[in-house]
């Protein structure tokens, strides 16, 4: 049965979800879109961020999102280290594409299984004052646990956009993807720039993981649900376009939310992968492609 209320609720929830999806995908837009590094393990780092937030929350009662922010330097270092291994093993030898892909696939698997070994396969959730509350916005009930991640996601998108367009390192990252000569003229070392970008990508992943665990409980294998989502969003958003990422994330969020409301939640995951397949087959350069 169709009802306008249901539709309005689904759309609002979808938009909020989209803001969060943008946060999850930013790292991929950066590393895959701009650097051509196919970090398929990105969602595993997201879940690692979720568990870090969960661990601090359950042991010390720290706010999950605050924890996520505090832990970003740590994940930045982790990301930079992963890129160094990747660079030394694959990029420098010029055989990055396939073996590099397998490398990240193996990394995803290692992170996931390590989490299973440490925390088991039960659902884990966090506690924070805003979880479970809901406010009324123009006749539509909005869960605060969705609203906060949405706001943080928007802030992250804006911050990354400003970083890429206004700072020296941000512009250097963009230059890496487009014009190596310009980069050399700027006096920047591409490997160093890519290390920084990769570190930022992983830091963003960990923070979005903290958002994830406030929205819904996680298990180690939750990362698999996000592989399709993040790559669908990155491809749809036009690989490397930060604004495009946000728009694509909201489209996906709304599509999933509508699907879940009107056809049942078991179909919603297929939406993202279906959109991804379609995007890949029809327009590999995305909606806002270069």
């Amino acid at each position: 049965m169709f009802s306008w209320d249901l539709l309005a609720n689904a759309v609002v929830a979808g938009v909020l979800l989209g803001g969060f999806y943008a946060a999850v995908s930013l790292g991929v837009s950066l590393t895959f879109g701009l650097l051509d590094v196919v970090n398929i393990a990105h969602p595993a780092f997201v879940i690692l961020g979720s568990y870090a937030a969960y661990a601090m929350n359950s042991s010390f009662g720290l706010d999950p999102i605050l924890t996520g922010m505090l832990l970003t330097p740590l994940f930045y270092v982790l990301g930079a280290a992963v890129y160094q291994v990747y660079y030394a093993s694959f990029e420098r030898r010029g055989e990055e594409s396939l073996r590099g892909l397998v490398f990240f696939f193996g990394l995803l698997f290692i992170i996931e299984v390590s989490l299973s070994l440490t925390y088991g396969v039960d659902y884990r959730l966090v506690e924070a004052p805003y979880i479970g509350k809901s406010i009324e916005l123009g006749g539509v009930g909005v869960a605060v646990r969705l609203l906060v991640p949405f706001a943080v996601g928007l802030a992250m998108t804006l911050a990354l956009h400003l970083f890429l367009s206004r700072t020296f390192y941000g512009r250097a990252i963009k230059a890496v993807s487009q014009d190596r000569l310009a980069l050399r003229l700027m006096g920047a070392n591409p490997v160093r720039i890519k290390t920084i970008a990769f570190g930022i990508g992983i830091a963003a992943a960990s923070l979005s993981g903290a958002l994830l665990v406030t929205i819904a409980p996680v298990v180690p294998s939750t990362d698999r649900d996000y592989i399709g989502r993040v790559f669908a969003i990155a491809v749809l958003g036009g690989l490397g376009s930060i604004g495009g990422t946000l728009v694509a994330a909201i489209i996906l969020g709304v599509a999933e939310s509508l699907m879940a409301t009107f056809f049942g939640p078991s179909w919603s995951l297929a939406v993202s992968f279906g959109i991804l397949l379609l995007a890949l087959a029809v327009r590999p350069t995305g909606l806002f492609g270069r």
Binding site: V38, I40, R224, I227, G228, F231, A232, V235, L269, A270, F273, G274, L276, L277, L280, A281
Partner: peptide, 8 residues
Amino acid sequence: IATLALSV
């Protein structure tokens, strides 16, 4: 990536 999507 497409094969992974197909699987899901």
